[in-house]
Design a protein around this nucleic acid. Structure first.
Lengths: 210, 210
DNA sequence: TTAACGTTTGTCCAAACGGTCAAAAAATTG
DNA sequence: CAATTTTTTGACCGTTTGGACAAACGTTAA
């Protein structure tokens, strides 16, 4: 006889569940699922543990709720890539959007990275399903652009992977990036620098004759 | 009165410590530090928990020993980048080496990624010290190549970050890569495909006039 | 043989953990 | 107001965890 999954009914429930999810994001992102305790999340949300468990039946329920939402937000930029648009512009704004997400939602990125690193036990089906479908579709679009000579020919799947890897790097490996860049180059401008560099990498032309 | 850190003295100690480190790598890489238990590591190493704790005083000692060793192996490819060599060749073999490491030592890569993701509490000083020094040195080399017109001009630090991000992606996000590529494209050839793609990305010339 | 030393294990412990529950407190409704 | 429902909490429970420890076992060498 399982307890039913809590659906928010009252105003308080909506608010408190949001509060808990925000706290969960903070805690999960910095310690991973196993490394986070319900007590930590409760404290971050400013309530007692039993109180928290009144809104979410289990620790896992908080986590899965978070990651489900996250996937949507995470795929949105790729979804917006428009076949009818100008290829260079489309790629450029995709990179921009991804870098902005790394800058503005690093916790979400880290939470996601954490899950994948551990073998994605909770979202494996989403990767093989929804994600693969979307990527295959957009890879076909990119391949079309390449065939039309609008983009240098290469493997579209690995092209997408490379954009993911480089942009998310600035969220997931932020400590390392800042440590290496140092206080001067590692300031707030690092995301702008990264965006410019990545545009050049993925779109820029090379020196002629080299 | 702390117990002294165990230094291997006998032949058995050397062997068993290696066995434990191998087991620890396996377990830590798939569950993270907090997610791994001493019992799991002991079982993976084929011994009892108290026996394991005879060779390493604490769980943390296993972890730090692993990560210390790892840093060395991890930086080696960058160290080998030779200012006197041909720029394109040097970059190409750096990428090759990094992709090979992602293919042959994915557990090491994941262990490292896990540590950075959690804020690198145990190796922050190494990042700001040894790592930064090395990267600054090699960034200067790359900048020299760029100034000499041997490489397209861009930010050398971000250039290195991009190589790290893209190559390690194939180890750290392996589940995702395989899920998206599917059974056909996601086979063993994916690393070779990745290497070719990345060489083109970092070194290839673009279509003229685009 | 025996003393010394290195190795292994069963047993135990205190703390931390996820989660339960009854009952109090607060808010809502009639 | 009183009745009802929702929200909050202190106390508690069973389990897991990292680690301690003494006793047993194995090996070597005087």
């Amino acid at each position: 006889m399982d307890k039913p999954v809590k659906k928010p009914r009252t105003r308080i429930q909506k608010e408190k569940r949001e509060l808990i999810l925000e706290a969960g994001l903070e805690v999960f992102a910095s310690h991973g699922f196993r490394g986070s305790t319900v007590d930590q999340i409760a404290e971050a949300a400013g309530m007692s543990k039993p109180n928290l468990l009144y809104y979410f039946n289990t620790k896992e329920e908080i986590f899965t709720t978070l990651i489900q939402r996250l996937m949507e937000a995470w795929l949105a930029p790729l979804r917006e890539m428009d076949e009818a648009g100008d290829p260079a512009t489309e790629i450029r704004s995709y990179i921009r959007r991804k870098i902005e997400m790394a800058r503005d939602f690093p916790r979400e990125s880290r939470l996601f990275a954490n899950e994948i690193l551990q073998g994605a036990p909770r979202i494996h089906h989403l990767l093989k399903g929804e994600l693969k479908e979307l990527v295959d579709e957009k890879a076909a679009v990119i391949r079309g652009w390449m065939r039309a000579g609008k983009l240098k020919k290469s493997d579209p799947h690995h092209f997408i992977f490379a954009i993911w890897a480089t942009t998310q790097h600035y969220a997931d490996f932020d400590v390392q990036v800042r440590a290496v860049l140092g206080p001067d180059k590692g300031g707030e401008g690092r995301f702008e620098d990264a965006a410019r560099f990545l545009e050049g990498l993925f779109l820029g032309e090379r020196l002629p004759g080299v």
